[in-house]
Nucleic acid binder design. Structure first.
Lengths: 141, 141
DNA sequence: CATCTAGGTGGGAATTAGTGGGGCTTAGAA
DNA sequence: TTCTAAGCCCCACTAATTCCCACCTAGATG
């Protein structure tokens, strides 16, 4: 279970260090993928396996194939180096609009990677609308 | 399991190199064939065998016969050379609109080969609709 | 307050991957 | 048979990746 928010920076070689608190649970090899809301998801190998099983259930029509392609081809398995860093490919960096300053956030089963500006803007709106969002969730049940 | 997106180029002899990460799982001999959505599929021999079994299950109506012809008649078995490259016949290159810059994408059991422009256009539309598609798929469960 | 330690960052060097091309060999056409 | 074209094997160059080591800062400790 990952919790907390950390501000780290990309170096010239597209590496970013994972918070020390996350390293044990993530293991020595992680999968970075496209996430929702323009951020990246980082999974441990075990969590990723569960994710692929979900993807395999997608319908075999055009939309299902497209999403499967996006999630699978967008994934990248990388080893964590001896300093606790992972390598993020260019196409994932540009997908999430990552430049240098980034936020690494723990969200339960997964770790998320955000551009710092996008994170600040996103959390600001969520904080503002939190009460309303909570209401809409409760009204469903 | 193949994942990730790589940009490689065809040389003057119609060869393209496979990403180093895929080579072990693909083996020394691969099958290249026509795929869906105007791209080519590349299978290892083992994965191709399973694929032919699936194709044999297609209904014996016009659509099933058509798909079976597409996959089977277009198939080409080639060895991977010492530098990790495969040879793609002209008729397959022109089917997928491949010129020089291409994308090699890992999608679970198979590897896909796309023209770079076509890939960028395709992923752009999927990305745009991704959040909505994900919502509609999840609402089924 | 000085020192020590752990976590985050930067960068050099060795290795590997991607690409280009020469030339031999085989197959098919004239 | 001979000529031609395509496939295949090998070598070579360059750029990217990976591995490793060193520094630096902040917080903890005595």
């Amino acid at each position: 279970m990952f919790i907390g928010e950390y501000r780290h920076t990309f170096d010239a070689k597209n590496r970013i260090s994972l918070p020390a608190k996350f390293r044990k649970d993530l293991g020595k090899s992680v999968i970075v993928t496209r996430g929702l809301d323009r951020c990246l998801f980082i999974y441990s190998k075990a969590a990723w396996k569960k994710e692929t099983e979900r993807i395999a259930q997608y319908p075999s029509n055009g939309a299902g194939r497209g999403l499967a392609r996006l999630m699978l081809s967008g994934a990248s398995e990388t080893d964590v180096d001896s300093a606790g860093r992972v390598l993020v490919p260019d196409y994932l960096k540009s997908f999430a609009g990552l430049s240098v300053k980034s936020v690494v956030a723990g969200v339960n089963e997964r770790v998320e990677l955000w551009d710092e500006k996008a994170w600040d803007a996103y959390t600001a709106t969520i904080e503002r609308d939190a009460d309303a969002l909570a209401e809409s969730l409760n009204s469903h049940s």
